[in-house]
Amino acid sequence: MRSTPLGTGTTPVTELSLGAAPLGNLFRPVTDEDATATVDAAWTAGIRTFDTAPHYGLGLSERRLGAALRDRPREQYTLSTKVGRLLRPRAEATGDDLADGFAVPATHERVWDFSADGVRRSLESSLERLDLDRIDIAYLHDPDDHAEQALSEAYPALEALRAEGVVGAIGIGMNQAEMPARFVRETDIDAVLLAGRYSLLDQRGLTELLPVAAERGVSVVVGGVFNSGLLADPRPGATFDYATAPDALVTRALELQAVCERHGVPLRAAALRFPFGHPAVASVLVGSRSAAEAADAALMLRIRVPDALWADLKELGLLAVDVPTPKEEY
């Protein structure tokens, strides 16, 4: 699988990255065996970039990912995790964490912390859970309500860690495009992990973020290309941004699927390939909770999507005429 360095640095990412939020029991449990099998299937498919965070399952995702990668040659893969939420043990662990989306016991509480000390403490804890000696990419995680502290304290701490060689690359990961665009303009980050805002159904990332990222040589890793399910399996009741999709979006997704079917291309394949039409995009990140899902994502990415498919989507108004689309030979 092809890889490219992030930004102007040397930290490589494969064009498909494995998102490990599901391995933290996102919405429903995953067994340890299935978590390991998912990582194994991704590795077999050529994926060498893996993303996790303390937030995912109160550290469970990091522990499982570290265990699954333990016997892999460290120099052969790139691992990213995130800072901004510290995990503080609860005096009494009662109930579960489903209010935050994870089917795990509520053994810890999340504490927002974008201070310089918080960044270092977070990475130290992540290294312990991952059982690794270094992090390749460190992202500021969802600083929506903490922008000023993230800019004035957390970012300089990450920049110093990068200069020290403790991390290879730094960036910001969010479900919005506006604040990451500010970080691209005002800092020297290597990458943006943009979730759900550059897909066949939502191109808000194209308004400002992607152009300024391309201009400044910042790489974008695109997550959420299926918009949490609707573009993987369009039907009434499917989810969009983790809520039931409105009827109008379901209709649009079904129209996208119909055009793809006329060209003999699964909608999943078109959804995965679409972001690569923009020169700032370095990788597409897909969360998988099973070996079958990981293998399917890799298979879909290998399917050739003809130029005529994108042309038809534009002619039908399903994509704006000025949206960049990948060339068939990509």
Rank of each mutant, 00 (worst) to 15 (best):
L23A: 08
D51S: 07
G59H: 01
R72H: 13
P54N: 05
H55C: 04
G66Y: 05
G24S: 09
V104P: 11
D51P: 03
P105Y: 11
A20S: 14
D113T: 10
L79P: 06
D32K: 07
I47P: 03
T49W: 02
L65V: 08
R48D: 12
L58I: 04
V30M: 09
E92M: 14
V83K: 03
F102P: 00
A37K: 11
L16K: 12
A20G: 06
G46I: 12
T52V: 06
R28Q: 07
G24H: 08
E15C: 03
P29Q: 13
T52E: 03
A91F: 07
G84I: 13
E75D: 15
P73G: 10
S115E: 09
R70G: 04
P54D: 04
T31D: 11
A106W: 09
P54M: 04
R88S: 13
P73L: 13
V83I: 11
L98Y: 01
L23F: 10
R90Q: 15
P22D: 08
T49Y: 02
G59E: 00
D100R: 09
D51C: 05
A67I: 13
G118P: 02
R72Q: 14
R63W: 04
G19H: 02
W112I: 09
E75K: 15
P73C: 11
H108L: 14
R74D: 01
I47D: 08
W43N: 03
A93Y: 06
A21H: 01
L58V: 04
A67Q: 15
E62K: 01
S80P: 02
A35M: 13
N25K: 04
G46K: 14
G95H: 10
T107W: 13
H108F: 15
D96I: 09
V39T: 00
T81F: 02
G59N: 02
R85C: 04
T52H: 05
P29S: 14
P29H: 09
W112Y: 06
Y56D: 06
W112E: 12
E15P: 00
F50M: 09
R64E: 08
D117G: 06
D40W: 00
A103T: 04
A67P: 12
L69T: 08
L98R: 13
L26A: 10
R120Y: 06
T38G: 02
T49V: 02
R85T: 08
T52G: 06
Y56I: 05
E15S: 07
